[in-house]
C-alpha cells in the first residue's frame, strides 16, 4: 500500500502508522461524560469509504486524514489532518 503524503509525495506504507477513524471529534471540556465516552470508545465499522488518521512518522511527522475504501483499499484523498479532531466551539 502507498500513501501520497501532501508534504513528501508518494511513500510506502511502512513509513506510516495507523490510528483509526477520523470522524469523532474531541468534545468540548464541558460536553459531559457520555460525549467523551462516545469519542473514546464508539466507532463505526464501515464497509466502504472511511476517512482515517495516519501518521507519517517515517517522514514529515504530519498527521494525515486519508480517505480509503475498506473493501478495495483504494485511497481517494489524502489531506493534512490539521484541526480535524478539534472540539467544535459550542459543541
Amino acid at each position: 500500500m502507498r500513501i501520497i503524503c501532501p508534504f513528501c509525495g508518494e511513500r510506502e506504507l511502512g513509513e506510516f502508522t495507523y490510528l483509526g477513524d477520523a470522524k469523532p471529534q474531541r468534545p468540548a471540556a464541558d460536553a459531559g461524560e457520555d460525549a467523551v465516552y462516545d469519542y473514546v470508545y464508539l466507532r463505526d465499522n464501515i464497509a466502504g469509504v472511511i476517512s482515517e488518521y495516519w501518521y507519517h512518522g517515517g517522514g514529515c511527522r504530519a498527521w494525515l486524514k486519508v480517505t480509503r475504501n475498506t473493501l478495495t483499499h483504494e485511497i481517494s484523498a489524502v489531506e493534512p489532518a490539521a484541526g480535524a479532531g478539534a472540539a467544535k466551539v459550542g459543541a
Binding site: 512518522g57 504530519a62 490539521a82 478539534a86
Partner: peptide, 18 residues
C-alpha cells in the same frame, strides 16, 4: 519516547490547532 512524540503531534496538529 517515540509514542509520546506521536501522541503530542496528534494533540498539536489534530486536536489543538489553534
Amino acid at each position: 519516547a517515540g509514542l509520546v512524540m506521536q501522541h503530542l503531534e496528534f494533540c498539536r496538529q489534530v486536536l489543538f490547532p489553534e
